[in-house]
Deep mutational scan, measured.
Amino acid sequence: VSEWTEYKTADGKTYYYNNRTWESTWEKPQ
């Protein structure tokens, strides 16, 4: 699942961004 990158927002929430599909999600990808 290497295309997903984990980021943190300014208020400390974690989200995930897909470099291949430009998708972002709050849930941890499978």
Rank of each mutant, 00 (worst) to 15 (best):
V1L: 13
V1P: 14
V1A: 13
V1D: 13
S2I: 12
S2G: 14
S2M: 12
S2P: 12
S2W: 14
S2F: 12
E3T: 05
E3G: 09
E3Q: 07
E3N: 04
E3W: 04
E3P: 09
W4K: 00
W4E: 00
W4N: 00
W4V: 02
W4F: 03
T5N: 05
T5W: 08
T5C: 15
T5Y: 10
T5H: 09
T5K: 10
E6W: 07
E6A: 09
E6I: 06
E6N: 02
E6Y: 05
E6L: 05
E6D: 02
Y7A: 07
Y7T: 06
Y7K: 12
Y7H: 11
Y7G: 04
Y7D: 01
K8R: 12
K8L: 11
K8A: 06
T9N: 07
T9L: 06
A10P: 13
A10I: 12
A10N: 10
A10M: 09
A10F: 07
D11A: 07
D11H: 05
D11R: 02
G12T: 00
G12L: 00
G12E: 00
G12V: 00
G12S: 00
K13F: 08
K13Y: 13
K13T: 08
T14S: 10
Y15W: 13
Y15D: 01
Y15S: 01
Y15V: 09
Y16R: 01
Y16D: 00
Y17N: 02
Y17R: 08
Y17H: 08
N18M: 02
N18R: 02
N18L: 02
N18S: 02
N19D: 06
N19L: 10
N19A: 09
N19E: 13
N19R: 06
R20F: 14
R20Y: 14
R20P: 04
R20H: 13
T21F: 05
T21N: 06
T21S: 06
T21V: 03
W22P: 02
W22H: 15
W22L: 15
E23T: 08
E23W: 05
E23K: 04
E23I: 07
E23A: 04
E23Q: 06
E23F: 06
S24G: 12
S24Y: 15
T25Y: 13
T25F: 12
T25R: 11
W26D: 11
W26I: 06
W26P: 09
W26K: 03
E27Q: 11
E27W: 09
E27I: 11
E27A: 07
K28Y: 08
K28W: 09
K28M: 09
K28D: 11
P29S: 04
P29Y: 04
P29V: 04
P29Q: 05
P29A: 03
P29T: 03
Q30E: 14
Q30L: 14
Q30A: 14
Q30K: 10
Q30T: 14
Q30H: 13
